[in-house]
Design a binder for these strands. Structure first.
Lengths: 347, 347
DNA sequence: TTTATAAATGCAATCGATTGCCGAAATTTA
DNA sequence: TAAATTTCGGCAATCGATTGCATTTATAAA
């Protein structure tokens, strides 16, 4: 195979030379600026097409200080919720000619800071982030984004006190509905698997749980609330503990994730707690597998793709004037309870 | 909230001015070029740190014509296999200071071309692609990548005749093992759900199927091979047809995906074909849900994260000298058969 | 001490696109 | 016909970093 020498790309100077004019005019014509005669403009556009001209984005970026690029930082790219948000983002931004740079923090605060710095260095126009669980209560890196004049949009897991654009789920409301549903199905002792309370998403889910209990006058029992039962394994472990109580719960709301709900189901099956008759199970996120287990698992859909699109549109709305938005604004998306077999004991 | 004015970033000129030297020296010092006195270099580095200097990547990119960015084009970002490949890619490239721009073709040839053009315009250093199913047998856009001096790496779904770097699974071997396993389990009439044969991945899987039958002297039966049974729905439809045959198959190899295997399982259950005793089922990809169904589904793991890392490393190896690699080279990763309940009838 | 050599630094062009400012040409108004 | 506007396009600087070439300075050899 012959050694490839990349073909030289056409520049505005090439066009200018061919037409015996200057590069300024070419630039103005191609950018629909005024100060160019309509006839000349048409000629320039035609010639540009003939020479297969493509604007050199690197040069343009340098001059303009903008890159039409959005940086995304998520804990894990391959987690269903996040990859779907990215799908929505990609879909909406691609149409506007924007590109996405994707980073994952792996739930590490350290890596998150590194990602942010990389994106700042890349001069992205906007950073979209869902913060890592491990956060240290230190948000200097996010403030830094704002200080650099880069639009910051938080989603799902957000830092409340930072004044930024935000797109979240109304997790509290969703959780309340889920627990209310359990109560309506006749479950009396409902346990909660909670996540790290420093994350808004998890504290809201707990709040919804408490609110529902209060509404239906169900007493809150300390021993039914299990901290940090986040993964399938931790969910299983928690369930083993719960089902061994003198008076075990008759329902478990795995507010952390569908994965922990899966752990619950495994242990319940192993310990012969029939689901849903003897134990109700509700997860969170509507992972695809939840409709495949037996019984299928009741869960909460977060409209992740839609969330991605919403984030993108929020960016475009707020930055139409090309000034970065400094007035905070929060869009809340209402999740939906998906009732399945694991909580359906009344027919 | 006050209007933010982004702080002006420090440039090499600022450093030069402060030290009464020229920007050239600063640049050389920071890039560890020779021709700089060691004392001066240290001073420059120290001052750069003090002034919180960060190289302007936009300027550097323009000058160097490189961007330390890799473009990725996949059919769907949120498909388990692809999102895991991306995880592996991100992991390996991030460490080297590279960034990833992600695009999805949505299985459309049209969109794929657009994605490629965007990435070429962005002057990415490398494009990593798994082609869309809908391909038109026209690969000008890929040739264009090479013509632009951009390293092209194909993975998983590849165009064989294009001379590029390639990373694939040995699907033929894996399929052969899967079918051999079915035969060993005593299944006699094994049906195949096949995917678009223009994609190497699917044609290889079929080849493996045929090879295994031949090896064990099992006759190939035309009616047991179903074209284009790709999705859960198509898999279900195909199964309905197969199980209604005068002499239905006693095993179905859903070579297209675990999703179609899921469709098979659904229909089998509905039609009271007990799995695995009366019908064996084998999928492809090891989607997380395959171990959650009842019975759990035998499938083939593609080591997707590892594949992502392999792609990245291949790039770094081949481009160490900063020349793009023009000698084709293919790395084949051996997938692994994961035997589960859906095909285990011998104990 | 003088010349040859090497090391350190500066100068200026380059990577392409963009844009403020100015002058020339065309058009309108008086 | 002369003066006042507009319109069109060119000039040159700018965005920062990089680098070949030239120049200066320091060091080694003669």
């Amino acid at each position: 195979m012959p050694l490839m020498k990349p073909k030289k790309r056409t520049t505005i100077y090439d066009i200018a030379e061919k037409l015996n004019i200057t590069a300024s005019s070419v630039s103005r014509a191609l950018n629909n600026r005024n100060h160019v005669n309509e006839t000349t403009r048409q000629l320039i556009i035609k010639t540009a097409a003939e020479l297969n001209y493509k604007r050199n984005i690197l040069a343009s970026n340098l001059r303009m200080g903008k890159t039409k690029t959005i940086g995304v930082v998520v804990p894990r790219i391959n987690q269903n919720f996040f990859s779907n948000v990215i799908v929505g983002l990609e879909d909406a931004t691609y149409q506007k000619g924007y590109n996405l740079i994707i980073c994952q923090s792996n739930e590490s605060h350290e890596k998150e800071i590194q990602c942010i710095n990389t994106l700042i260095n890349q001069h992205v126009d906007c950073i979209v982030i869902s913060v890592s669980a491990d956060s240290d209560n230190n948000y200097d890196h996010l403030k830094n984004v704002i200080d650099h004049g880069i639009q910051l949009i938080q989603f799902d897991r957000i830092i409340d006190e930072l004044q930024t654009l935000k797109v979240i789920n109304d997790s509290e409301q969703a959780s309340m509905e889920a627990v209310a549903h359990l109560i309506e199905q006749g479950y009396k002792r409902i346990a909660l698997l909670e996540g790290p309370q420093n994350l808004n998403t998890f504290s809201q889910r707990k709040a919804g749980y408490l609110k529902a209990l209060k509404k239906f006058n169900v007493p809150v029992e300390r021993e039914l609330i299990i901290e940090n039962a986040w993964t399938k394994e931790l969910g299983a472990e928690a369930t083993r503990k719960l089902l061994s109580l003198p008076v075990p719960p008759d329902a478990i709301f795995a507010s952390t994730s569908d994965f922990s709900a899966l752990g619950v189901l495994d242990v319940a099956t192993a310990m012969h707690f029939k689901v849903p008759s003897k134990l109700g199970i509700c997860g969170f996120s509507n992972e695809p597998f939840t409709e495949l287990t037996s019984p299928s698992i009741t869960t909460i859909d977060q409209f992740s793709i839609h969330m991605g699109r919403t984030i993108a549109n929020l960016y475009f709305q707020e930055n139409e004037n090309s000034e970065i938005a400094t007035t905070p604004r929060t869009i809340s998306i209402k999740p939906e309870l998906i009732v399945r077999a694991s909580t359906s004991r009344k027919v």
